[in-house]
């Protein structure tokens, strides 16, 4: 089956002229429809750059990005913007419009897609129902907790019925309990709507909790990839072992802290 996301020999070099920095080094990755794909690595490993190459918020220096069968780099700006409505994204710091209330935030992608206001409001109500914040439509982000804000961000991301959801450290700013609830929400969304989810994280617990597949990124390269079960059971490379082992120890402490995995 053709993968929904196909990354081929992706290399990204910053400051090519003055002080070159290779963020991504010849990365190839296939993600199938319906996967919950974890990309894990230490901070600075290049995973945030990698995920932004999928929706071209970052343009790779070389390599090919094929999403939903389309050669992303070949699209015009207008086509790219259209395609981005199929690839939603949520962020570590939620990135909500702080001057707008929850409803306006969720309706924003619908406004971009020229959805009529009344229809947008209706869709917003549905989404709030899904994320369990029906009573917060008129609240401002500053009045919400971190977990609630991420729920708003997820509702916003789902507004346009995307096929792919990119999560950039979406739970890193949250406490363990909230992390769990957000992860189960993502899991539910994946199961209910068949949305492919790509999760960037530095927390092995997150991968273990919901991912079907995982790629370990180190120094801009993928050192190992496969199903979560395979990698955890028999890590092959040093980096994978280190990460799995290190994370295992840490997971224990997190679990003891009440994460309840």
């Amino acid at each position: 089956m053709e993968p929904i996301i196909h990354l081929e020999n992706i290399t990204k070099i910053y400051n090519e002229k003055s002080d070159p920095l290779k963020a991504l080094d010849d990365i190839s990755l296939d993600i199938q429809k319906g996967d919950i794909y974890g990309i894990i690595g230490m901070s600075g490993a290049g995973k945030s750059t990698l995920v932004r190459c999928i929706n071209l918020l970052e343009r790779p220096t070389s390599g090919r990005v094929i999403v939903r069968g389309k050669d992303m780099q070949a699209l015009s700006n207008r086509e790219l913007r259209r395609e981005r409505t199929e690839i939603s994204m949520i962020f570590q710091h939620f990135n909500l419009l702080m001057q707008k209330n929850v409803e306006d935030n969720i309706c924003f992608p619908l406004y971009i897609n020229k959805v009529k206001k009344a229809d947008a409001r209706k869709r917003c109500a549905e989404l709030l129902e899904i994320v369990g914040l029906s009573d917060k439509a008129k609240a401002y982000p500053s009045q919400l907790s971190g977990g609630q804000r991420q729920r708003v961000a997820i509702a916003r991301a789902l507004a346009t019925n995307p096929k792919i959801l990119l999560c950039d450290e979406a739970t890193s700013a949250l406490d363990p309990q909230t992390t769990t609830s957000i992860l189960s929400l993502l899991k539910e969304i994946n199961a209910r709507y068949g949305i492919t989810i790509v999760i960037i994280t530095h927390e092995m617990a997150v991968v273990r909790e919901i991912c079907t597949h995982v790629a370990i990124v180190d120094n801009g390269r993928i050192v190992e990839k496969g199903t979560v079960d395979d990698i955890f059971d028999s890590p092959k490379t040093e980096e994978a072992k280190k990460l799995v082992l290190y994370r295992r120890n840490r997971d224990v402490t997190i679990a003891e802290g009440g994460e309840g995995i």
């Binding site: 419009l97 702080m98 924003f108």
Partner: peptide, 26 residues
């Protein structure tokens, strides 16, 4: 916040929308 701008870009907002609906508003 650059993150909010990036979020708008990820939704497929064009620059004019980002200026009028994100930059000026925020």
């Amino acid at each position: 916040d650059k993150g909010v701008i990036e979020a708008a870009q990820s939704m497929g907002a064009d620059n004019f929308t980002i200026i009028t609906r994100v930059l000026i508003v925020e």
